[in-house]
Nucleic acid binder design. Structure first.
Length: 280
DNA sequence: CTCCTGTCCTGCCGGC
DNA sequence: TGCCGGCAGGACAGGA
């Protein structure tokens, strides 16, 4: 479900409410999601204060005052709800992890498909954690640029859709924003990576940053079940240029003489949407 | 090494 | 109305 903008939005909501809070109780309602819940989750968190919440790629990192770091991933269907005055909250279907906070609020991790993950590490070793050691640069950070992207593309002959989905190339894009970014850069999703020019790579890096920034500003995209931590809906889905718009005219062709029909194809088992008239 | 396919799991939607 | 197939925002193992 959630890609970088959605995770960023959830993380910001969590930071607002949870930073400086003490976790009083940790309740796991099953043994595992995609991976088992850490056996020492309860003992490492209960009675400790949350010092910082941050996002890395599609992961949420929750730092504790004892050096513990909770690593959370929402998978496809994961949601996090923050409930004020939740002392008497009755767990709902697919609520798998519930933190009780010092102010009486609760954080609920709900995940129907259970592709999500909750892991535990220490701030001293977090950078070498297997989830992060292979990860590419943050697209909105300083280490990502058109030239950095161009260098990586030179060594790859796979199609551009697959390359941008690869978290080792750039961290945080997913199925929606890859289609959107390739559209804005005018690059066909089936183009071989090593056939992308330096200038196109520059345009693509800029398109990636732009679409992500706009999506974050809109609070992410709400498809089926995504919500902010406070239950609000994101609204960037209303600004999609191509994603989910098979058969419609793309924004760039809207004023042109020869109108396009947005096409949907399947690459690596995932749907890709693009404009056949303007993406080459 | 790189690349591609299948798989994990539940829910929802459209077609019959 | 009900049943069934296909598809869904992700990541990783395993095989070629």
């Amino acid at each position: 479900m959630p890609e970088l903008p959605e995770v960023e939005t959830v993380c910001r909501g969590m930071a607002q409410v949870m930073e400086a809070q003490t976790i009083l109780s940790v309740l796991t309602r099953r043994k595992n999601l995609r991976v088992p819940f850490p056996a020492n989750l309860q003992s490492r968190l209960e009675g400790h204060k949350i010092t910082k919440l941050e996002r890395r790629a599609k992961y949420i990192l929750m730092h504790m005052d004892n050096g513990a770091v909770v690593i959370m991933h929402l998978g496809m269907s994961g949601r996090i709800f923050l409930l004020p005055d939740a002392e008497s909250y009755e767990p709902q279907k697919h609520d798998h992890l519930i933190f009780g906070m010092g102010d009486g609020s609760k954080m609920v991790f709900n995940d129907a498909r259970r592709f999500g993950m909750v892991m535990l590490d220490h701030e001293k070793t977090i950078e070498s954690h297997s989830a992060f050691s292979q990860l590419g640069p943050e697209p909105l950070g300083n280490r990502f640029s058109g030239s950095v992207l161009y260098e990586v593309l030179q060594n790859k002959k796979t199609n551009m859709k697959a390359v941008l989905m690869d978290q080792r190339v750039v961290a945080g894009l997913g199925n929606i924003y890859v289609s959107e970014a390739l559209f804005y850069a005018g690059i066909h999703p089936e183009r071989a990576a090593n056939k992308v020019s330096k200038e196109e790579a520059e345009n693509l890096a800029a398109a990636i940053r732009d679409v992500l920034n706009r999506a974050i500003a809109a609070g992410g995209s709400t498809l089926k079940d995504y919500r902010h931590a406070d239950g609000e809906l994101g609204y960037f889905q209303h600004q999609f240029a191509v994603y989910g718009k098979e058969g419609e005219t793309c924004p760039r062709c809207a004023d042109a003489l020869n109108k396009c029909q947005i096409q949907k194809i399947v690459q690596s088992g995932r749907s890709t949407y693009f404009c056949p008239a303007t993406q080459k």
